[in-house]
Simulated scan of single mutants.
Amino acid sequence: MTRTVAGGSREAVEQCLDRIAARDDEVHAWAHLDPVQARRAADLVDRVESDGRLLHGVPVGLKDIIDTADQPTAYGSNAWAGHVPAADAAVVQRLRRAGAV
């Protein structure tokens, strides 16, 4: 099986989640984080052979100003708290097509 991420996407996601857990109390970089969703997406990617997509299995974090249809996007404002966009922004569509998690 060919993988873009050495050791698999799940391992890369776990490393990211561990780093976030260790530092985010100080940094406060994450407005929304869903470890269950990240792990599920990584496991799905790890079950299939890479079809050559450049970001197959690579974990990606996005700023809270970029629309994601499956996660809340508050645009850095309490006025938009809990808002879930109807569609992904173009950059998110491209990341997903490239295989990013």
Results as ranks from 00 to 15, higher is better:
Asp25Ala: 13
Ala31Asn: 01
Val60Leu: 06
Gln37Gly: 04
Ser77Ala: 11
Leu44Ile: 06
Asp64Ser: 09
Pro59Ala: 03
Asp46Glu: 12
Ile66Val: 15
Lys63Met: 02
Lys63Leu: 02
Asp34Gly: 11
Ile66Arg: 04
Ala31Thr: 04
Asp64Trp: 04
Leu33Phe: 05
Arg39Thr: 13
Asp70Ser: 12
Asp51Thr: 15
Val58Ile: 09
Pro59Phe: 01
Val58Cys: 02
Ala74Tyr: 00
Leu33Glu: 04
Thr73Leu: 05
Gly52Ile: 09
Ala42Trp: 02
His56Asn: 13
Val45Tyr: 08
Thr73Phe: 07
Ala31Asp: 01
Arg40Thr: 14
Ala29Ile: 08
Pro35Asn: 07
Pro72Gly: 05
Asp25His: 08
Ala69Arg: 15
Ile65Asp: 05
Trp30Met: 15
Asp25Asn: 11
Gly76Met: 01
Ala29Met: 03
Trp30Phe: 15
His56Phe: 02
His56Gly: 10
Val48Gly: 13
Leu55Ala: 13
Val58Glu: 05
Val45Cys: 14
Asp51Ser: 14
Ala38Thr: 09
Gly76Ile: 01
Glu26Asp: 13
Glu49Thr: 14
Pro59His: 03
Pro72Ile: 06
Leu62Lys: 00
Ile66Ala: 03
Arg53Glu: 13
His56Ile: 00
Asp64Val: 10
Ala29Gly: 11
Tyr75Thr: 01
Pro72Val: 09
Val36Met: 02
Asp51Asn: 14
Arg47Ile: 06
Arg39Phe: 01
Thr68Gln: 10
Leu54Arg: 14
Leu62Pro: 00
Thr73Glu: 05
Gly61Thr: 13
Ile66Phe: 04
Asp25Thr: 11
Ser50Glu: 13
Ala41Glu: 12
Leu33Gln: 06
Gly61Glu: 00
Gly57Asn: 07
Val60Asn: 03
Leu44Tyr: 10
Val36Ala: 15
Val36Tyr: 06
Val36Thr: 14
Asp25Pro: 00
Asp34Glu: 05
Leu44Cys: 06
Arg40Cys: 03
Val27Met: 10
Leu33Thr: 12
Leu54Asp: 12
Asp51Arg: 15
Val48Glu: 13
Leu44Gly: 14
Asp46Met: 11
Gly61His: 00
Val45Arg: 15
Leu54Met: 12
Asn78Asp: 11
Asp25Lys: 08
Lys63Gly: 04
Arg39Asp: 05
Asn78Cys: 00
Arg40Asn: 09
Thr68Val: 15
Leu33Arg: 14
Ala74Pro: 00
Pro35Cys: 09
Gln71Gly: 07
Asp70Tyr: 04
Asp64Thr: 10
Asp25Glu: 13
Asp67Ala: 15
Arg53Leu: 06
Glu26Met: 01
Ala42Met: 04
His32Met: 02
Thr73Ser: 09
Val58Trp: 04
Asp43Ser: 11
Trp30Ile: 10
Asp25Arg: 11
Leu62Trp: 10
Glu49Asn: 14
Ser77Met: 12
Asp25Trp: 03
Arg40Glu: 14
Pro72Arg: 07
Gly52Cys: 11
Arg53Gly: 12
Asp46Ile: 13
Leu55Ser: 08
Ala42Val: 07
Val45Trp: 09
Val60Tyr: 02
Ala29Cys: 09
Asn78Val: 00
Pro35Asp: 04
Leu33Ser: 08
His56Asp: 15
Gln37Arg: 15
Arg47Thr: 14
Thr73Val: 06
Ala38Arg: 02
Asp34Ile: 08
Asn78Arg: 11
Asp67Glu: 15
Asp43Val: 03
Arg47Pro: 03
Asp70Ile: 04
Ala74Thr: 08
Asp51Met: 09
